[in-house]
Structure formats: C-alpha cells, structure tokens
Amino acid sequence: MPTLEILTHINAPPERCFRWALSVDLHAISTRQTGETIVAGVRSGVLQLGDSVTFRARHFGVWQTLTSQITALDAPRYFCDEMQRGAFQYMRHEHYFEAQESGGTLMRDVFEFASPLGWLGRLVDALVLGRYLRAFLEERGRVVKEYAETEAWRTVLPAN
C-alpha cells in the first residue's frame, strides 16, 4: 500500500497549527484548485473526534465525492482522518504536530491509500496517483504554513 510522508516546517505554535489543520474552512481554501466543496457533515469550524465531512471535488476531470471521519485525536499533537466512503479502496491520513525549540512546529502528514481494481489500481497508484496526491498534500501544507505564520489565520479561525 503506498504511503506518502510530507514534512512542513511552520513558524507558529503547535496548538495553532493543530486547530488550523482541523479547520474545514482552511481545507476549502487549500483545495480551491479542485473546486472542492463540502456537501454533507460539518460545514464550517474545527472538526472534533467522531466528526465527518463529505467533500465533492474534481480530480483528473472527474467529479468525486469522499466522506472522511476524524477517528483519533490527541490535541495538540495528533489526529487521524479516514475515508468512510469514496473512490479509494483505502485511505488513512495521520497528522502529527511536533513542537520545535524555535517555537515553531514540524507538521508531518502520513497518507496511506490504495486504489481499487487490484494490479491495475496498484499500477495507477505507482505511476500517477502518488505524485498527484503528494502535490495535493504539499499545497495543503503550504497553505497551512502561509496562514499560520501570518495574521491571515485570524480571518478564518478565531484566536481562542
């Protein structure tokens, strides 16, 4: 099963980065390139343990729907979301937030996925989907970093 690991260094405290990464409003900002919208579940604010959200987005020219649920949460160090319904055979996204001596945060995303269709799905994962998803997650990390390091985060997420 393919596993991607993305490291993002953010000059902001872990508590802010953690809350920001759980914000569905941030998610909407970070996925504008796919036309992603929330069609069910939590539609704004910060997700909590057990919450689910359903997104609709265009990937590879095809509209897809994916429902994800927060299945584990240890604030402000870790949370996990897992696909409940969607195009993947399997999808699990773990988010780690490690405080740095500088006062910043190392955000580490571990993303496991598998496409359906057996050997054909594995071939697509290896040749196309791995690179696509890495770029998608790197862009999300870039947006989290941009908003968390500036006062822009206050326009979407309350300070408390």
Rank of each mutant, 00 (worst) to 15 (best):
G121K: 10
F113H: 06
E101V: 05
R92V: 00
T105M: 09
A99N: 07
Y96N: 10
D109F: 04
W119R: 15
M107T: 01
R92I: 01
S115R: 13
E94T: 03
L123E: 11
H95S: 02
E112N: 08
M107I: 01
L106S: 04
D125A: 02
F111L: 15
R108G: 07
V124N: 03
L120I: 15
P116H: 12
M107A: 13
L120V: 15
Q100I: 05
M91N: 01
E112G: 11
F113P: 11
E94F: 01
G103W: 00
E94S: 10
M91C: 05
S115C: 13
H93F: 00
V124K: 05
E98K: 02
D109Q: 04
R92Q: 01
H95L: 09
G103L: 11
E101W: 00
T105Q: 02
H93Y: 07
V128E: 06
H95D: 01
R92L: 01
L127I: 15
T105I: 02
D125G: 03
G121S: 13
F111Y: 14
L127H: 07
E98A: 07
M91Q: 07
F113C: 12
M107K: 11
W119Y: 15
P116V: 12
G121H: 11
G121I: 08
L106P: 02
L127W: 06
Q100F: 02
L117N: 08
E101Y: 03
D125T: 04
W119Q: 11
H93V: 04
D125S: 08
L123Q: 12
F113Y: 15
A126C: 04
Y96K: 04
H95C: 01
S102T: 14
L106E: 13
G118S: 10
L123A: 15
D125M: 02
F111R: 03
P116C: 12
S115G: 08
R122T: 14
R108E: 00
R122H: 14
L106T: 10
L117I: 11
F113E: 07
F111M: 14
A114E: 15
A126G: 14
F97E: 01
H95Y: 00
L120W: 08
E98T: 13
G121N: 05
S102V: 04
E112L: 09
V128L: 15
P116Q: 13
E101A: 15
G118Y: 08
R122M: 12
A126T: 07
E98M: 05
L123H: 05
D125Q: 05
R92G: 10
L123S: 14
Y96R: 11
L117P: 12
A99F: 00
T105V: 03
F97N: 04
E112S: 12
L117D: 13
A126H: 06
M91I: 00
F113T: 13
F113A: 06
Q100L: 15
S115Q: 14
M91Y: 02
V110F: 01
L106Y: 07
M107R: 05
E98F: 02
G121Y: 10
